[in-house]
Write a protein that binds this DNA or RNA. Structure first.
Length: 802
DNA sequence: GTTCTAGAAC
DNA sequence: GTTCTAGAAC
């Protein structure tokens, strides 16, 4: 392959000149087809109109609603019209919903292949689209008023994000008004001769953070049979894609003389020339990928031959355990000795080159310049975990901005040789925005450089051991990240899903134990390797307490354990409000140590009084036991809504729960289950769910046992609904597992859940307000989503068809 | 947690 | 005018 010595834009024009008649197009600029993707009310027309009004280049908006002399026309008419506009050198907006790949397909064939196809995805909250389309008048497609909500809902149900693989060169995702404005600006200021960078932009899922479970569910529904998805990335991938990219990466000779800045173009040309496919098929993936530099070989002067042996050995050990996730060894230099050594040794060991390959490029620009999306990158850190010092460490800290330093500091202050530290990268970091990196894993290897601290003085026995440990820690850290994103090796996943579908599975202790051990093995069996000075002392690996409920879904929870341990602060990420930090100690009145917040108001004390003095409230209680009392919620949010109250002084909320409370939590669950079953005897049409609010309004830990009809006059507002139907509601089965494994429950409490859009818990349709939601749920008979059926979260009457 | 109510949304 | 939300008070 010839080195690229042209500027990308120049290169495009050079290519264009070779095409017959392309000269004219160059003079007129390069027309582009922008396919708008979005539900009615998402603002597609507004977007187009704005750009057309303000842009220097000629644009045509093709709108199916008006194409027939101001009236609705056909798709064919749209294509014809768009084609004509392109002939005239005009750029084109395809202003229709284009919600799925099939609808977009025909428009992607427009013009000659030189015409870039872009997508602008207006993925705004369903509620906003609904309310806009409900209230608008004079809509071109006559979609307004009452029927709009239903249409929008239906469309959102089947929305399918565009993928580069469909044939787009550029996809811009807009999740909020600000994104929309930015995208409008981008296109408004797109001059006649300008070419926008290719790739996916703004790709993120704002719901992911607050609605992990729900997003997981949506993923499963949207794309059955696909695996290897990254939670935050709605892009899909295929084997074909992975093969193409693997080729483009591994085929690149180590001594390739192409300057690294042009790696992306290099890849593009290689692929389009050699396989006839285009850049579109290979620039973005959602295959979980860890890009890592060679550890210790640069500044720490570790022997390259020995280092390459260790890399290959560790890769071989882990690669098969990471499902279809990929490991990529990256080096900036084209003549990198370590890359060629590793490549040769990996080939000799027949390591699957789809799963592991080497790549020449800047680890901080793998996507923007190399066209390779890596959700996780490793940093060859220094022991202080500080920026600077040159090399990869300086580059990564610099590219990630201060956010990485802050996030790192929150988790650890130093790192020992052989250890790794997983740091979730804040979404504000440029590395996250531009490169799609979600996590940085700091790794510290052994030092053979006398100028640096902890020099091993050429002791390669120890050095090799430590370097091996460093890679193990790194790959374990990567595995733990995969698990947090709902991804895990397929085999374990299938196995655990199988056993999760039935409530009865809760007693399959033996089986679970085997799996847990298998996974332990899979994770390297050396969990203590990952260093973190925030590690809580009460973590224990002897998790096999009685098995039963906490034994379920063990794969995921073990991974969660790893996650918490590794990052030492993942819980914090899930609960950004500092008041819920796991270390908080509270006084009995709920005021924390700072005395600043969270005193329980007088109205919040009633449950506490029930728990402490049940005999005074005998008439209001269903059951009084030594450890718990059971009562009807005073304001039930469903036909049946009971509370199981803990009778321990000082146990006010889920955040107060620690491992010592496990027996109590088990009792609460068992009593809750008993009552659910009792109520099911009275009315077998009910379905129950047991769980805790992440942050309760009422003092004294209480388990909600609530029927899933939500048929109650007391369910009045968003907060009511969302507190039972978002991740804010923590299923008792999950809490038991978490506490059993990690000694604490995950709290999902940021205030956003209150204002989250209202979605039916069964069919997931969105509704503009509480009354409409209630009308809907009173008749929705859709089966419950898989995630709710998993792990025995729902309790049905025996024999009932779900 | 609920109730009350101003004012936004319809 | 009526419906609905959200914030303050309790």
């Amino acid at each position: 392959m010839e080195p690229m010595d042209l500027h990308p834009q120049t290169a495009s024009r050079e290519i264009a000149k070779e095409e017959e008649g392309a000269q004219v197009k160059v003079e007129n600029g390069k027309p582009v087809v922008v396919i708008m993707v979005g539900a009615p009310g998402s603002g597609k027309s507004t977007f187009c109109d704005h750009v057309i009004r303000t842009s220097a280049r000629p644009w045509v908006r093709i709108c199916q609603d008006t194409i027939g002399n101001g009236k609705a026309g056909t798709k064919i008419a749209c294509i014809k019209s768009a084609s004509n506009a392109l002939e005239e050198g005009k750029s084109v907006f395809i202003d229709r919903c284009n919600m799925d790949g099939e609808q977009r397909g025909d428009f992607l064939k427009l013009g000659n292949p030189e015409v870039e196809k872009h997508a602008v995805v207006l993925d705004l909250p369903a509620k906003l689209c609904i309310s806009r389309s409900v209230k608008r008048t004079g809509h071109e497609g006559n979609l307004q008023g009452g029927k709009a909500a239903a249409v929008v809902n239906r469309m959102l149900q089947k929305k399918e994000f565009p993928k580069l693989a469909e044939g787009f060169t550029r996809i811009t995702f807009c999740h909020n008004e600000k994104d929309v404005e930015a995208a409008m600006n981008t296109y408004s200021t797109l001059g006649l001769l300008d070419v926008l960078p290719s790739g996916c932009f703004g790709l993120k899922n704002p719901e992911a953070k607050v609605q992990l479970g729900i997003m997981r569910f949506l993923k499963k529904v949207d794309i059955p049979g696909k695996d290897g998805l990254v939670e935050s990335n709605p892009q899909h991938s295929s084997d074909n894609q992975s093969a193409v990219e693997k080729d483009s990466g591994s085929r690149r000779p180590a001594n390739d003389s192409a300057p690294s800045e042009y790696v992306h173009m290099d890849v593009k040309n290689t692929v389009s020339q050699e396989s006839g496919s285009s850049i579109r098929t290979n620039s973005v993936y959602s295959i979980p990928t860890l890009a890592f530099p060679s550890i210790s070989t640069a500044d720490f002067q570790f022997n390259l031959d020995k280092a390459s042996d260790i890399i290959v050995e560790k890769v071989e050990e882990f690669v098969s355990k990471l499902g279809n996730a990929r490991l990529v060894l990256v080096d900036l230099s084209h003549g990198s000795k370590i890359l060629s050594l590793v490549k040769a040794k990996a080939a000799r060991k027949s390591i699957d080159s789809k799963k592991f390959f080497t790549f020449v490029g800047d680890i901080t620009r793998l996507y923007s310049q190399g066209g390779m999306k890596c959700n996780v990158i490793a940093n060859a850190a220094n022991w202080r975990l500080k920026p600077g010092g040159g090399g990869v460490n300086a580059a990564i800290f610099s590219a990630a901005g201060p956010a990485l330093e802050t996030a790192t500091k929150e988790r650890a202050e130093s790192l020992a040789p052989g250890k790794a530290l997983v740091v979730p990268l804040p979404s504000t970091s440029p590395l996250s925005i531009k490169e799609g990196v979600t996590h940085v894993v700091h790794v510290l290897g052994p030092n053979m450089n006398a100028q640096r601290p902890n020099c091993l003085n050429n002791d390669y026995v120890k050095g090799c051991k430590v370097l091996g440990e460093a890679y193990s820690s790194l790959f374990e850290g990567f595995a733990s990240i995969l698990s947090t994103q709902g991804w895990m090796p397929k085999e374990s996943n299938e196995k655990s899903l199988k056993s999760q579908n039935q409530i009865e599975s809760k007693h399959h202790d033996g089986d679970q134990k085997v799996k847990r051990e298998a996974l332990n093995e899979c994770m390297g069996g050396k969990k203590s390797k990952i260093f973190c000075n925030e590690l809580k002392p009460n973590f224990s690996h002897s998790v096999d307490r009685k098995g039963n409920i906490e034994g379920r879904k063990n794969v995921e929870s073990l991974n969660e354990f790893e996650r918490n341990k590794n990052s030492g602060g993942f819980l914090k990420e899930l609960k950004p409000s500092a008041s819920h930090s796991v270390d908080r100690k509270e006084n009995l009145d709920g005021r924390d140590d700072t005395g600043m917040n969270k005193a329980w108001g007088p109205w919040a004390q009633s449950l506490y009084q029930f728990a402490m003095h049940p005999e005074r409230h005998r008439n209001d209680l269903r059951e009084i036991l030594d450890d718990v009392v059971v009562l009807d919620d005073l304001y039930p949010k469903a036909r049946k809504h009971l509370l199981v109250l803990a009778r321990v002084e000082g146990l006010d909320r889920l955040a107060d729960v620690s491992k010592e409370h496990l027996p109590l939590l088990n009792t609460m669950h068992a009593v809750g289950l008993k009552w659910a079953e009792k109520l099911l005897n009275e009315n077998e049409s009910l379905v129950f769910r047991l769980g805790y609010h992440s942050e309760p309004s009422m003092r004294q830990l209480h388990l909600h046992v609530i029927s899933q009809d939500f048929d109650s006059k007391h369910l009045k507002n968003k907060k009511h609904w969302n507190s039972f139907n978002t991740p804010f509601f923590r299923d008792s089965v999950d809490v038991l597992q978490e506490v059993s494994k990690h000694g604490e429950a995950i709290i999902r409490d940021d205030d956003s859940f209150r204002s989250m859009e209202l979605r039916c818990h069964r069919c997931r349709s969105a509704h503009p307000n509480i009354p409409r939601l209630k009308t809907h749920i009173s008749s929705c008979q859709a089966p419950f989503p898989g995630v709710m059926l998993d792990n025995g979260k729902l309790v049905f009457a025996p024999g009932r068809i779900r």
